[in-house]
Structure formats: structure tokens, C-alpha cells
Simulated assay, not measured.
Amino acid sequence: MELAQIGIKAGLVVIIFAISLVMAMYSTYAERKVAAFLQDRVGPNRAGKWGILQPLADGGKMFMKEEIIPTRASGLLFIVGPALAIMTACIGSAVIPWGQKIVAGNTIIDLQVTDINVGILYIFGVVSLGVYGIMIGGWASNNKYSLLGAIRAASQNISYEISMGLSIIALLMVTGTLSLKEIAEQQHSWHWNVLYQPLGFLLFLVCAFAETNRSPFDLPECETELVGGYHTEYSSMKLGFYLFAEYINMFISSAVMATLYFGGYNYPGMSWMAGHMAVWMPHAAPVIVPLIGTAVLFAKIVLFIFFFMWVRWTIPRFRYDQLMDLGWKILIPLAITNIVLTGAWITVHDKFFK
């Protein structure tokens, strides 16, 4: 790889990392504003106009709070837990295609850190590693509530990853590839995968709530039973890392769902827009058209994040036995049924309509 391309990739990594942190920061603000709207309140309104600086105030508070490590905690692992959680949350964005390639003169900028042919497996691997940060933190805290929260997180993760994997198998049968870039490119115009895999998307969405520990599946940090769950003993920025990891995971999950099922950076009329832009602004079109696609992808992500928040403040939390019953007795059989139906549909389509 040329030195210039290495610099471009490094710059893209920094930009995506910064965007992930900003999205996590302002997701906390949006969460409180959405909750206030649904509960007929005002929400944060003191730090800056409309409370827009509230995330900065919260971040400053996290940095300045006293750093406490319990006497009987496992010191090194107590630090490793939140570090691992935030690291695995951030590296999931490496394979997401944020837009088409930008052509600026002789420079080509690919809006994807890396396009590996097993991108979906990479996402699953990263998600699987994320639960270790929770497990390590809960165990190292030497607190029964933290340990119970960590055990819940691990069992919940195992249960719902199976359903999520099975829902993706049906999607792979339709797309024929594991590359997120290729899946996005196949969904031009209105050929979005959600139209071909509505049940698969619904299963993936429910599992995404469980994987990100969002209500109504936030049992690992259930404050009514476990005080604060796996991060009960944490304070200062260690607690901040766990909270940031949750919101970054929500951002990445929204990006993955938008890419897999809702066309990613594609939108209706994209080819028409590209053709006319090439006539109207031939020199600027190779830059503007991909950026419009990126803006469309972020609009879809914001809608998914709003949906995550809407559900949190609308639906009550499941009991733990209900959570596990849903995963093993309902979602897995539905996912297997979806695979069978998809296989039958593909067989009939290939035999009679090709």
C-alpha cells in the first residue's frame, strides 16, 4: 500500500473514532431529551442553549470524580474490564462501509477502513469479545451484585448470539456474500434486504437490543435488583468507559442494521442523482455524491438510535426467566423457520422464475 493510502486510512480511523465518541456523548443527551419528551418534561436545559453542552459537563464530571478501587477488588483486572469493553466497542466500526469511494483528482478515498470478505464474522467476533469486558469487571469487583450482573450478561449474550447468527444465515442465503461492502452495493434503489427478509430483520433487531444490554433486556445492570449490575463498584472514567461502550455499541449496531437491511448508503434515486450531478458539476460530483450517501446512512443510524431510546422509555423490563425463554424457546425456532422458508423461496425462484 502506498504511503499516501496509509495516511488516508489512518486519518479515516481517527475520524471514525472521533465520530463514535461524539455520537456516544450526544446519545446521552438525546436519551434524556427523548425521555423528557415521552414523559412530558423539559430535560437538560441549563448547560448551554437547550442544554446542548450537557454531555461536556457530564464528561468533565466523570474525569474529575474520585478514582475508587475497592480494597478487595482484583486491581489489574478491575482496570482491564472497562478498557476491554470500550476497545471492543470501537473496533467494530472497521468493516462498516460508510459510503462510496470519493475521487478527488488523482486521490481515491475509500470510506471503509478495511473491506474483508468475512466482514459479518468480524462483527460477530468483536461482539463476542465485548462481553469479556463485562465479565472481567463484574468478577474483579468482588461484589455479589456485580458478579450476578456479569453472569447475566454472559448468559444473555450466548442465548441471543445464536438467534442473531441464524437470522444472518438466511440473509447470506439471499446475498451470497459475507462482505458488508458487497451487501451494501447489492441494495441499490429500493432493493433493500428488509423487503426480502422481514422476519430475519425483526429477529436481528430484537437480538441487537439484547446484545447491547438495552431495555427491555438490560438485566445485567438492572438497578431494581442489582444496584448497578456489573459496574456497581466503578466510578470516575472507568464507569464512563462502560457507559460509553454501551452507547457506542448502540451506534455500531444501528450502522450494521442499516447496512445489512436498509441499503446502507444507498437511497432511491441515487443513480439519477449521480448522473445529473456529473452533468451539472462534473468536477465536484465524485466528492459530493458519496458524501450524500454517507449523510443518508447517518440519517438511518439516527433513526435506529431514536428507536432504541423510544423502546427504552416505553416498554418495561423483562424478568430474567422471560428473557431466557424468549431467546431459547421463541427466537431460535423462528430463526430456524426463517432459514427453511428462505431456502424454499430461493429454490422455487431459481426453478420457475429464472
Score class of each variant (00 low, 15 high):
residue 60 G to Q: 09
residue 304 F to M: 08
residue 113 V to P: 07
residue 217 F to L: 13
residue 15 I to A: 13
residue 103 V to E: 11
residue 197 Q to H: 07
residue 55 P to R: 01
residue 130 G to V: 06
residue 17 F to N: 06
residue 214 R to N: 06
residue 116 I to D: 00
residue 145 Y to A: 08
residue 74 S to H: 13
residue 46 R to F: 07
residue 87 M to V: 14
residue 333 P to K: 06
residue 318 F to L: 14
residue 297 L to K: 15
residue 166 L to G: 02
residue 132 Y to E: 04
residue 200 G to E: 02
residue 316 P to V: 11
residue 307 F to S: 00
residue 324 M to A: 00
residue 242 Y to Q: 07
residue 335 A to Y: 00
residue 140 A to G: 05
residue 179 S to P: 08
residue 126 V to W: 02
residue 214 R to T: 04
residue 91 I to E: 09
residue 108 I to M: 14
residue 113 V to F: 13
residue 314 T to F: 10
residue 150 A to T: 11
residue 224 T to F: 04
residue 26 Y to C: 11
residue 17 F to K: 03
residue 191 H to W: 14
residue 194 V to G: 04
residue 193 N to D: 04
residue 269 G to F: 09
residue 106 N to P: 02
residue 71 T to H: 11
residue 19 I to D: 00
residue 4 A to K: 12
residue 262 F to C: 11
residue 90 C to I: 14
residue 215 S to R: 12
residue 116 I to K: 00
residue 128 S to G: 12
residue 286 P to W: 08
residue 10 A to I: 09
residue 285 A to M: 00
residue 131 V to I: 11
residue 170 A to R: 05
residue 353 F to P: 07
residue 58 D to P: 04
residue 92 G to H: 09
residue 326 L to V: 04
residue 66 E to L: 01
residue 179 S to M: 09
residue 49 K to G: 04
residue 70 P to C: 01
residue 321 D to E: 03
residue 342 T to G: 09
residue 111 L to I: 11
residue 88 T to H: 08
residue 143 N to V: 08
residue 354 K to M: 10
residue 49 K to R: 14
residue 223 E to H: 10
residue 225 E to H: 02
residue 9 K to M: 12
residue 121 L to F: 02
